[in-house]
Design a protein around this nucleic acid. Structure first.
Lengths: 232, 232
DNA sequence: CCCGTCGAAGTAATGAGATCA
DNA sequence: ATGATCTCATTACTTCGACGG
């Protein structure tokens, strides 16, 4: 239900609300090519349909929302170039039957969205390489332990062999601070991911990108961690 | 001229001019609380007129900003709890003189903003722990190399000592795939990072992206990297 | 200096699908 | 199943800083 306020706004017959003036005939649109919807976005396909006819008739022409046609063209232009020289702006505006101002606004908003999307993508990417790195680290740590064991054995062997002759010191034990790097990770998984679910789209290709990393993605993670923990 | 109107809009705490004309009563309560107008209205900003020509084109719903008082209270409530039970919503609405709908919208928008902010923070956090991890990995790799060298020496020594007696094989060379983990990162940097200053550094480990990096934190970093670079 | 325009950031509001009591 | 509310995407507006007359 809408409130009284909204009803009034909606019912504004004379488009003081706007656009009616801006687009004399532009409201014809609202057809719905079910195609695209940029980006892997399974849910939420927009533009199912809109109460088609009402736009023109009495009462409310609220007409927010650009038509799919308009969006398609704008999007296409955005793909070419995120910036909008006023020349192109005017051309687009007249092609689409929009106010140049609207075209400019659309581009501004589009840039903002693009930036956020970028951030999400980068986050997912960074997260995945980070996980790889953590795994690598685990491998290296195991390897170090093995090497240390071997070295200890070797040293012992040398000691044994050199009961009479002097053997060099290989300093097996006082080495580098390998333990220092062992801790720090393993608990950086806050519930944050749940909050953002890093986003539906992430989940969608999730299955392919990280092998199984499946549910909650900590499976692979924990597994490795557990395995690692058995070593220390 | 429009400027007069807009100046009034800004100066008038009731914001009824113009809006009230367009939507009688619509946003009546929109800043009811006559309080405000106090204090920090720092600059008498020059008013911008409507673009796209005359004021008529802007019919969209005018943007009445919430007063500082209102925002403060809303923000405070948001801090306590991001969700809004309709009870609290109504209470807040009446306290602030807003439409309950506005309160709900405010919370929705606030949650969305919070989510983005959160994402940025998490990105920065993840990035920093990732960098730490990468460094750790470098340390471990160096350590492995050192251990391997020592082991090789030890083995050689054992061979030398055991000209007559049998020495065990420590398998110095055919070990684990340490080299496999050395590469993988280091070039996933798009120009995106420039956009979000979050990641300026971390471009290419072997260039001097790290070089002067932020004075506060990367001293250790560069130092270590340089040191690492001498090894490869 | 003031003015007009542009871009980015922030914000208010709408609209549509999904959810859940 | 109906309505309230959420989320997500989107449109539009405001503020502000920078630039070029």
């Amino acid at each position: 239900m809408t409130t009284a306020i909204e009803d009034q706004v909606e019912a504004d017959p004379h488009g003081l609300l706007m656009i009616s003036q801006l687009f004399p005939g532009a409201y014809a649109q609202y057809h719905l090519p079910p195609l695209q919807s940029q980006g892997p976005k399974p849910r939420r396909q927009r533009r199912k349909k809109n109460r088609g006819g009402d736009g023109s008739s009495s009462g409310g022409v609220k007409k927010r929302k650009l038509s799919d046609e308009q969006v398609r063209l704008l999007e296409q232009n955005f793909g070419n170039e995120h910036k909008l020289e006023s020349e192109r702006k005017d051309r687009l505006a007249s092609e689409l039957g929009l106010d140049p101002r609207q075209v400019a606004v659309w581009f501004q908003n589009r840039r903002a969205r693009w930036k956020n999307k970028r951030l999400e993508e980068e986050y997912a990417r960074l997260k995945s390489i980070h996980e790889t790195t953590v795994l690598d680290k685990c491998h290296l740590e195991t390897e170090i332990i093995q090497l240390q064991e071997k070295l200890a054995e070797a040293t012992k062997e040398i000691q044994r062999l050199s009961v009479s002759s002097p053997a060099p010191d290989f300093g097996v034990s006082g080495n580098s601070p390998i333990s220092s790097s062992i801790s720090d990770m393993g608990q950086q998984q806050t519930d944050f991911m749940g909050e953002f679910g890093i986003l539906q789209e992430y989940h969608d290709y999730h299955e392919d990108v990280f092998h199984i990393a499946a549910p909650g993605e900590s499976d692979y993670y924990n597994q490795t961690l557990n395995w690692y923990n058995t070593l220390v």
